[in-house]
Every structure is written in C-alpha cells, then in structure tokens.
Simulated assay, not measured.
Amino acid sequence: MKHKSDVFDIFQKYEKLISNKFGKPMKILRTDNGREYCNLEMKRYLEARDIEMVNTAPYTPQQNGKAERDNRTIIESARTMITAKKLPLSLWAEAVGTAVTMLNRVLATVGYQNDSMNYRLYNPQNNKIYISRDVIFNEKSQLRPEIGKEFEYILPTDENEDVAKPVEQQQEEECLEAQEESKNQLGNDRQLRDRTKIHRPIRFEIDFAEYNPPNTFQEAMNSAEVENWADAIQEELDAHEQNETWPIVPRKTDRKPIDSKWVFKIIRDTSGDVYRYKARLCARGFQQKQGLDYTETFSPVLRYDSLRVLLAMVTEQDLELTQFDMTDSSQQKQVKLSSQ
C-alpha cells in the first residue's frame, strides 16, 4: 500500500476475500480514529454490508492492544533479520512478509508464497525473486553486499527434484517495480546506521527545589513566606465576610463547636515559578454526630455539565430562567424562588 488513501479499495478486496474464504461475513471492523477509516465512503460501505465499526478512544492505542503488539513484534522481527544478515533496505517488504508468515505458522509447515508452501528466494546478482518448493538453509551464510560476497542458498541437485525457477513474468515485473520504487525512496546507498556509533540521548537537568506548603497555621506563621501566607489568609477571611458565609451566634454550653483547619496551597505558572499563595478555611465537618449536630444529609444531584448546557441554551434562545428550591423539615415547607 503506497498511500493511506488506498485503504478503502484494499479493504473492499480484503472483506470479500475473507467472506468467500470462510463462508462467513465480517461483523465488526475495529480501528483507531484515522481518517483513512473514519470517512463517509467507508461508512456507507460498512452500512451496506451490515458491518459495525468500533473505534478506539482518541490517543488510546491500548484498546487495540492485540494489533499494536503484533505491529511491534512484526517490525522488530523484520528489523532484526535485516540487521543480522546485513540485507539492503529494499528487502524490507520481504522481511515483513517473512515475519508475518513465521508468526502465523509456527509449529506448522512454513511457506512464503501467499497461501502456498513455497519459499521466496532472493538472488542479489540479478536482483530477482525466485520461487522454490524445497530449500536447504545454510545458517552460516551471510549476505554482505558492501564487500561483494556471494549470497549462498543451497538447492537440491537431484534431477528428480524441483529446482528454483523464476516466477511468472508479470510477478517478476511487479517485484522489480516495487524494488525500484523502494530504491528511489530510500536511496541506493542508504544503509542501517552503525549501532556502535549510537550514543545515549543528552539529559537535560534543572536545579529545582521542591517547596512543600505548610500543613498548619503555626507552620505558615513561622515560615520564611509568612507575609505571603498572611495576605492569603486575610484574602480568604475577607471573602467569607463579603459573602456572609456564616452568622455569629451565641455559643451553647451543652454543644461542642466544630473547629476548622487552614489548608495552604501554592499555584505555579507554566515556568514552575510560584505566582500565588492560596489559603482556604475549612470546617472539619466529620466531627459532627448524627442526631446531635444534624438530622438529615443532603448532596447535590445535578451534573454541572448539564447545567452549563442548559444555561447556554437559555442565553442563545433569549429565554427566561426560573430556579427554586424546596425543603421539607418538621412538616414545615420552605420555598425559595428566583428568576432571571
């Protein structure tokens, strides 16, 4: 496949091949969100064939774990074969095909010529691919194009045995065209880089002292940033006073009041520099006892995403919004209404 735009045509052929070969239709196509799959043409074809498309979440390749793992295994196997035997990169497609065959047919009769049990043999002298049924491998042989060493593959010499013969003219021309195109893309003199010359990447380090905010009010008042924390505390108290968060009431002698805790936090910018000191006064509500400090509990049930959508619709359509809360306590009903 030369371009991603070829995916649709190739998929149609593949889908029909699978259906004819196994006598069962394809049911689900699982893909990532690539535009070569997620397009109108592919969608219409799948709907016509009653094939469901299942897409992974964006930037979540692990949902296609099997395909991703197989891709890595195949690529690493092909790269290992080419590196170990010092083969030219023009044989990359052949190496990938060999890796796929080996993975698919381990513990079975192995062949490389489509679904047959024939082998594909490469002759570097004439740059041609040959097909043979019987091959004896010489594991000690090694192709070294840079020094002109002859590539050795041993074929049966018995007259009754089949010997390697060139493929049909059409297949040979297609193979040579593919090799020529690969040469044009990779360059005739391009080789794998020397592994001994690969250096470890440069490590960029930064001197950064981690600063932990104080855990208590006393720690904030005794820290070197006491002025910053004091300003943050005053800002928090002013906000409570302005919003009338609580009313001041007489203390009851038979009740133990709920105490509070200061929570401190520092806010950093994109450069890692501190640009704000933040303080929050939090009541420690977990000290309350049911029946003594409270009788019922309430929690919000509205999703804020839904509220934002509703407010956006009101604004866009110039509607009026009315909100009301209803509480029922001790057989007394209280209703608050507000409108905008």
Rank of each mutant, 00 (worst) to 15 (best):
L46R: 04
E47Y: 05
A48R: 12
R49V: 05
D50K: 14
I51M: 06
M53P: 10
M53A: 09
N55L: 13
T56A: 13
P58W: 09
P58F: 11
T60V: 09
T60F: 04
P61R: 05
N64H: 02
G65R: 10
G65W: 08
A67D: 03
A67S: 10
E68P: 15
R69Q: 13
D70N: 15
D70I: 06
R72C: 07
R72L: 10
I74N: 02
I75S: 11
I75Q: 13
I75P: 00
E76P: 02
A78Y: 04
R79N: 00
T80D: 05
M81W: 09
K86T: 11
P88W: 03
L89P: 01
L89Y: 04
S90E: 15
L91A: 09
W92V: 04
A93M: 07
A93S: 14
A95Q: 01
V96H: 00
V100N: 14
V100E: 12
T101E: 05
M102S: 05
N104G: 00
N104R: 13
V106T: 10
T109F: 00
G111R: 12
N114A: 02
N114T: 01
D115V: 10
M117A: 08
M117C: 07
N118S: 05
L121P: 01
Y122R: 05
N123E: 09
K128I: 09
K128E: 14
K128C: 11
I129F: 09
V135M: 05
I136N: 10
F137E: 11
E139M: 09
K140H: 02
K140S: 08
Q142Y: 12
Q142S: 11
Q142I: 15
L143A: 06
L143C: 12
E146P: 05
E146F: 14
G148Y: 02
K149L: 15
E150D: 12
E150Q: 12
E150G: 02
F151I: 03
F151D: 03
E152C: 03
E152W: 02
Y153A: 11
I154G: 00
I154S: 03
P156E: 02
T157G: 03
D158H: 06
E159A: 14
N160S: 10
D162Y: 06
V163W: 00
A164W: 01
A164H: 00
P166Y: 06
V167R: 03
V167F: 03
E173D: 13
C175Q: 01
C175R: 08
